[in-house]
């Protein structure tokens, strides 16, 4: 699709969307948000890029293949349960620090899990979008 308005808007929108995705991710364990929605919003940014600039550009902007994101996400999610084992609690027991941060709130292992979900969702969604868009172009 050739639309100057869309292309220009995309340029401004994608950084905002990615930033918002990151914001959603960080507050997810305390307030509405989380890795899943965050990942979807981030993937939506790339979907927008696909629509206005084409798959090739979007792939280049993502830098790594979607599959790498999937692997990264799964690994982080798997690893996030391990700290609990080290202090001899059951796997996946949430461990929290006492310190409080603005926006984020308390830090803890559930945030690590959320980050894993975040990357997994980005990976899967972009994989689906890229594949479908490439099919369309052929």
């Amino acid at each position: 699709m050739y639309s100057v308005i869309l292309k220009t808007a995309t340029k401004y929108l994608t950084p905002l969307m990615l930033l918002f995705a990151f914001f959603l991710l960080l507050r997810g364990h305390n307030e509405p948000g989380g890795g899943f929605v965050g990942g979807l919003v981030a993937a939506a940014a790339y979907a927008l890029m696909v629509i206005s600039y084409g798959v090739k550009t979007a792939r280049k902007e993502l830098k790594y293949a979607p599959l790498s994101f999937i692997i990264l996400g799964l690994s982080i999610a798997l690893i996030s349960g391990i700290p609990a084992l080290l202090v001899s609690e059951t796997y996946f027991t949430g461990l929290w620090t006492e310190m409080k941060f603005p926006v984020i709130g308390k830090l803890g292992t559930p945030l690590i899990f959320d980050i894993g979900v975040f990357f997994l969702v980005i990976g899967i969604t972009t994989k689906i979008i890229f594949t479908l868009a490439e099919e369309d172009q052929e």
Partner: peptide, 24 residues
Amino acid sequence: MDLLLLLPVLLPFAGGIVLLILKN
């Protein structure tokens, strides 16, 4: 013992990830 009960799920999961990394 706790971990033994979870390993039948975690081991294929971890294995699947490793095999994905070895994709090529």
